[in-house]
Design a protein around this nucleic acid. Structure first.
Lengths: 186, 186
DNA sequence: ATTACTATTAGGACCTAGTCATAATACTGG
DNA sequence: CCAGTATTATGACTAGGTCCTAATAGTAAT
């Protein structure tokens, strides 16, 4: 049986969310309704046409790569950044981050969040990690939100030491000390 | 004075590189030539129309955010594995692994290779990283092949210590000691 | 069954940002 | 001045729409 309007609109929303590149024609085919129905649905749901959708996906990317801050290169989303001082990013643990067996996040994602935040916090063209000492305090599960806070604790001529503590709620889940190399002297 | 064809085409290329969202009409205005001239130029230079350009920027963004760090069980390709003893994997550094600025591999990819190899080498349902101490010995560049060798150096009731050394050719590029937690006793 | 209402489909005019082909005009070097 | 290149103009056509009007289908209540 064909879907009712409400169900169809819900699925439509999901379909477009998942593949913003899909045209009305393809959607009409997929839901076995006319193109006009799809268009009415989009109107009611306030979903723009495929070219506008594509453009906004592109725009997101572009803004970030244009920013002086290498935001696109940070794993997670940077929500605060004071160069050479501190930075905060959040990472929502999703299906692709966990072991399917037990829904526990793979350690390297937490490491990646912390490490890339360290790179971002340093005001330098070429910041590289030299050493790191890290502890995984407790395992992080699917759908948890990891907030990583990086703090610069020492800076000398060529090296910067950054401490990162990552929490889920009030619980510390990860902590690490990163020694970073800079290309420019201080 | 107006630019000669060759100069214009060169500048055109740069302009589109910089702002792929620009239309032929806007370009025509900018270079003070007709739209048709811009179109001829694009033809000769093999530059697609604005919608295609936008789409490809969007496309890049789309699968990159999905594969920032892939979901595979092991990052890299396992070429040898003796459970609870040793393992070897290789990772070819490609464009998605490097900073675009300087073509140097982001540290977390090397970490991910090593960390996931540690998980794989342990014969356990639920192996998790507890601590790690790592050193990035030299930076790895685009197109280099990283060979990671993991060796179990100690095993007690609940913990296993694994040492990983990663080389590009004969050069050591990464080394680390990982303390892993097992769910089952030994 | 008739009415009332919503949902769906259809059609036409118009839009943008193009492609492709043809033709006319302008510029430039020998 | 003429040839060859560069530029501009024009018209027909395209995809993937918007916006508006109108017809038809389905359903629920009286």
């Amino acid at each position: 049986m064909k879907l009712k309007k409400k169900d169809r609109q819900e699925k439509l929303n999901q379909a477009i969310e998942k593949t913003p590149f899909i045209t009305d024609e393809e959607l009409a085919e997929q839901f076995q309704v006319s193109i006009q129905t799809i268009r009415l649905d989009r109107m009611e749901l306030g979903i723009p046409e495929v070219r506008k959708r594509i453009e906004s996906v592109a725009q997101e990317n572009w803004d970030e790569t244009l920013k002086a801050l290498p935001a696109a290169e940070v794993i997670g989303e940077v929500i605060d950044l004071e160069l050479d001082q501190s930075a905060i990013s959040i990472l929502d643990i999703q299906a692709e981050h966990v072991f399917s067996r037990n829904q526990i996040a793979r350690g390297h994602h937490l490491f990646a969040q912390a490490n890339s935040l360290c790179v971002a916090v340093i005001d330098d063209e070429l910041a590289l990690t030299v050493n790191a000492s890290i502890q995984f305090k407790r395992s992080v599960r699917l759908n948890e939100r990891v907030v990583a806070k990086a703090k610069v604790i020492n800076t000398d001529k060529k090296r910067t030491t950054v401490e990162v503590n990552s929490h889920v709620g009030k619980e510390l889940v990860f902590s690490g000390t990163f020694e970073m190399y800079r290309s420019t002297d201080r």
